[in-house]
Design a protein around this nucleic acid. Structure first.
Lengths: 155, 155
DNA sequence: TAAAAACAGTTTGAATATAAACTGTTTAGT
DNA sequence: ACTAAACAGTTTATATTCAAACTGTTTTTA
């Protein structure tokens, strides 16, 4: 088995590809679970719900920032969540520009069903890993994000 | 500055979020470059072109697998690349199910313009990193991918 | 070798993505 | 206080995503 030495730049490209690949496997795993149990929700809606479960009553812009989406995607996604009876839109009395998003009882209940699947797929993925090396990688990715943010604000 | 200790499972979720965030910054950076120079191409098309630059003459399924997309997305994306005159579809004489995708002269030329931007964004991201830690993270992500693949094939 | 299974690509339909232009609200600057 | 700027959300237009059903081709297998 030969060892191929990659340059730093080549490793960066590989990292990008592996991130993409990992995310697509996680997505696939969750989507299979959703379909097997006939839950009427998409992966994207789950990402949004996951944030709302952590912080009920945010406005749409905050949810968009946190889930890394455009605010116009959020209008559409929240529309669909409202249609499914999982959240409700409430106009902010203190700032009438904001629409605050609150969980319905149904939305709260869904958490108990869906969160275990998310935990499950990550559990499988990290089974053979050391906590420390996992932490190192989080730190590394966050450094990369930081470098790109800094560069952006310089221009 | 307090140090918060996260569980392994929490780190995994963080890693997922950081991957998503990093990818979205890379995308943004490239899209700004594309727009600044008025190149008629999308980020998704660039991902496809990047693979074709590495391996000219693949069929659509291979490109779909490699760029982590459904083959039906590929039909659409290749259509758009053909419209822009960057690639051409050639029916495989040996297996008439396949359509082989070849670069046009224009498609080849584009590589010289776009590859530097991709290199650039990754260069910025990895500027402060050690090659070894970058490599460790690639290994870690690939282990995670491997665990999910293994689990999948067991079911 | 004929039928069945596997495979590559396309089409269709529903959901999501972004950017840009827009409305309405709040904040800042003069 | 008034005007301008900033902000939140919506709408529109276009591109992309996936799944599922379909066509046509090749390979398996009985």
């Amino acid at each position: 088995m030969e060892t191929i030495t990659l340059t730093k730049a080549e490793l960066a490209l590989q990292l990008g590809h592996s991130m993409h690949e990992l995310r697509s496997y996680v997505r696939q795993y969750i989507q299979v679970k959703i379909k097997e149990h006939s839950v009427n929700i998409t992966f994207e809606m789950l990402e949004v719900m996951s944030f709302i479960w952590k912080k009920d009553g945010s406005n749409q812009q905050e949810i968009a920032d946190e889930t890394l989406r455009d605010k116009s995607s959020m209008t559409y996604l929240i529309d669909n969540l409202v249609k499914r009876g999982l959240v409700k839109r409430v106009e902010d009395e203190n700032d009438r520009r904001n629409k605050l998003i609150f969980l319905t009882e149904q939305g709260k209940a869904l958490k108990e069903q869906l969160n275990p699947w998310v935990a499950e797929v990550y559990d499988i993925a990290i089974a053979d890993l050391e906590t420390a090396s996992l932490q190192d990688s989080v730190v590394l990715l966050n450094k990369m994000i930081g470098s790109l943010k800094t560069n952006k604000s310089q221009n």
